[in-house]
Design a protein around this nucleic acid. Structure first.
Lengths: 377, 377
DNA sequence: GCGGCGGATGAATCTCACT
DNA sequence: CAGTGAGATTCATCCGCCG
């Protein structure tokens, strides 16, 4: 028997033995949860309908149609109807949770505030809100808002008194403390991981990435724990639970989704002990906006920019743009204009006068990069 | 008068003139907002009390202390009291907002879900939830949760129909020519920016960084706009508003905070005009008819138009229409027809051959726009 | 085999002035 | 106030094809 098995705590199930098979239940989540025994679940992960309230169609600038989430299951008559639905499933989930269980819910600004308020009303105790930052979100095609680049997860214990599971040491080890923050950077689910039907089209419109669920399970559950997912969808929670030695009860109303998840689950192997700890955190070179240099006071609005030979001048504006003659635009666009070039790296082209002489504005970016180092994971 | 001034829309205030002095009002925010004229505010930034459960000092709108009985703490009643308080100040703020005004609220998981749900119930229309990621958050000492490394801001229009202000192009130009995302990385307020009392201790426990407010104002307000802050605290919103040529009405209940913010505000200088002039959005640029381009001789009648790949051809007619095969119509309609698309921007779709190669007809429009700008200067 | 290029796509509350 | 039409609008990533 390996040493890692010896480290397993006494109340936990011995690896490879006695962990109940993960299963997909096809049916309405509230009715099915009511059939489960009270106090039988260690962790809940829920990805409920977001109630997006979309109207009309949206096209990309290249005229292609955005394949929106307009499914029947995401339609609610009113906020009130959505609230009633939310209260009902949260109450049903609460009943089957063990006293020390905790619950995760993921959502967007369309629904997450309602979910969070109702959670609190029902006596759940919020432990964190965790932000999933997408490094490849869909852009805002019409330029009317900020790119919706994140979703919010609420992590809550069944009550304020719950002795919930948080694998602090395990999470900290090997990850340089980075993943302990409440903001997580992860890509959306694409490529080979995305379930496709025989027609080659995505099976489910909102399949979550396995890495996201994996981090949730590794942080807030133990091996052999029973995980409940009331809105199983494409079965990601069940698949990740099985891979990481948890036992999942996944409920899904849609016949097609349920069938696809059973196929998916059958293809998943539980990982060997040694592999369970690693959760690679992707790093990237932090991008710095010129407006940040101004916001941080490193260059003042109104400051004069010049090229390295002091041949041309431009002036810095409060919003992070630059004025060159009558033209206004980014440091790059204005640098290109000043040189009558197609393109230009404004960071190295533009300089400011300092006590030590002319300095490229890139030197100020370096200051901010230094501070940002390590935060991108 | 500079061309940038001419581009400023009529309802905007002439730079350097007529921007009402920013002011700090000492008093209860609901009572003071009720004294302000309805529909008089362009933007609201609100940083309401966060965590009432821990502080235990919840006041009703009438200043009475909410009864927090030690041995029989009623959690539900406390949420209810906070909700009533939230509804009251949001309603008062909504009354003083112009129809096209928008509102920002910042909070943490303790209160933001309740605020967001009530916002929606009152008819506000959420535009984004924006995450302020702190690069230097307070660590979680007990190791029982993820480090709370962010706060959440909700940006909402007064109604779904509001034509809110969003300086999309300026924001994009200041951000490496990329759309600004919903997650912002900024340091917390420390060092010289942090207001200190005579005893050297911080004046206010939750002073927000000026960079955060600056980005909010630059993204969602115009010069001369009236900004309202019902929970002014250390006066950051007022200070940043004044610096960036906005007029702030700041309300603060606490005498000491109000006094400190007045001192702070007196030391703030408004930035010079050239740093504040707005980047005109393309949608606000003067309209140019295609027939004008022909009349001015920039493109001759009978000239051949083609797309950027030279796949299709059309011909220019003297009246400003375009012939594509047997069809005749506007540059936009014929561009759509050529692509079999629903719609098309003919200015960027159609090109003509020039000595320097293929040029979009938009470049000829730019010539005329440039002349028009010069004429008004 | 590899690199470049074109096409596809992801939980989306996504226009606005003028008649 | 509803209808109409000009015209403005995308980032990261993956996959497949072609040279």
């Amino acid at each position: 028997m390996s040493s890692s098995v010896m480290r397993t705590q006494a109340h936990h199930i011995v690896p490879g033995m006695d962990i109940p098979e993960s299963r997909i239940i096809q049916g309405d989540c509230i009715a099915e949860m009511e059939k489960l025994p009270a106090g039988s679940v260690d962790l809940v992960f829920a990805d409920p309908p977001y109630n997006l309230q979309l109207q009309g169609t949206l096209h990309r600038p290249d005229h292609s149609l955005v394949d929106a989430v307009d499914d029947e299951w995401d339609q609610f008559a009113s906020f009130d109807a959505y609230d009633n639905f939310t209260r009902a499933w949260l109450l049903a989930a609460r009943r089957v949770m063990k006293p020390n269980a905790s619950l995760w819910v993921i959502g967007s600004y369309h629904n997450i505030f309602r979910v969070g308020a109702i959670l609190q009303d029902l006596g759940f105790w919020i432990l964190n809100d965790v932000v999933w930052r997408k490094n490849n979100p869909m852009p805002n095609f019409r330029g009317r808002r900020f790119t919706n680049a994140h979703e919010t997860m609420i992590w809550a214990a069944r009550s304020a008194e719950a002795k919930y599971t948080f694998n602090y040491e395990a999470m900290k080890a090997g990850n340089e403390d980075l993943q302990l923050r409440s903001d997580w950077l992860l890509p959306i689910c694409t490529g080979g991981e995305r379930l496709k039907g025989k027609d080659g089209r995505k099976v489910h419109p909102t399949q979550k990435p396995e890495a996201l669920i994996a981090r949730v399970l590794m942080a807030s559950s133990k091996r052999g724990d029973v995980v409940l997912d009331p809105f199983s969808g494409s079965g990601t929670t069940a698949a990740v639970s099985k891979r990481f030695g948890r036992s999942c009860v996944a409920i899904e109303r849609d016949l097609e989704y349920a069938a696809a998840s059973r196929d998916r689950l059958a293809g998943v192997e539980t990982l060997p002990d040694e592999a369970l700890a690693e959760l690679p955190a992707k790093r990237e070179a932090p991008r710095v906006a010129f407006s940040t240099v101004i916001e941080r006071g490193l260059i003042a609005p109104g400051a004069v920019l010049t090229d390295s030979k002091r041949r041309v001048e431009a002036s810095v504006r409060a919003d992070g743009t630059v004025a060159f003659g009558r033209a206004i635009g980014s440091i790059h666009k204005m640098g290109a204009l000043a040189q009558e070039a197609e393109a230009c790296n404004g960071w190295t082209y533009w300089h400011v006068e300092t006590a030590k002489g002319l300095a490229p504005i890139d030197s100020f970016r370096a200051v901010i990069r230094e501070e940002m180092a390590g935060l991108s994971a």
